[in-house]
Amino acid sequence: MIIYLLCLVLFCCGIYCILRKRNIIKIIVGIIISEYAVNLFFILTAYRVGGRAPIFSSEAEILNMVDPLPHALVLTSIVIGLATTALLVAIAMRIYEKYGTFDITKIRELKG
C-alpha cells in the first residue's frame, strides 16, 4: 500500500512544482515528474505477487507472469510524454528568444 501512496506523493510534488515555481524550465520539469508518477502508478497496477517479466522464451515456460498490458500502455504514454516535452521545450526556447527571460511573472502580456 505504501508504495502506491509514494506514487501519489511524487505526483503531488510534480503538481506543486507546476503551480508554485516561477521558472518555465522548472514548470516543465514539474510536468515530467508528475507524468512519471502516473506512469509508475500504472506499472504498479500490473504487479502480481511473485510474478516475472512477461517475456516468452523458447527455453523455459513462465507460469506466473505480471500483467503485460500496462507495460505496453505506459510505453505509449512515455512516447506521448516525449512529444509533449519536446514541444514545451521548443516553445520555452522561443519564449526566451522573444522575452529574454524564463520568469513567468515577467511574461504576462495576456491576462487570461
Binding site: 519536446a86 521545450v89 521548443a90 526556447m93 522561443r94 526566451y96 528568444e97
Partner: peptide
C-alpha cells in the same frame, strides 16, 4: 530532427 531543431534554434539565438 527534434534534437537538431532544439540545438540549431539555440545557435541562431
Amino acid at each position: 530532427a527534434i534534437f537538431v531543431a532544439l540545438v540549431l534554434l539555440r545557435l541562431d539565438g
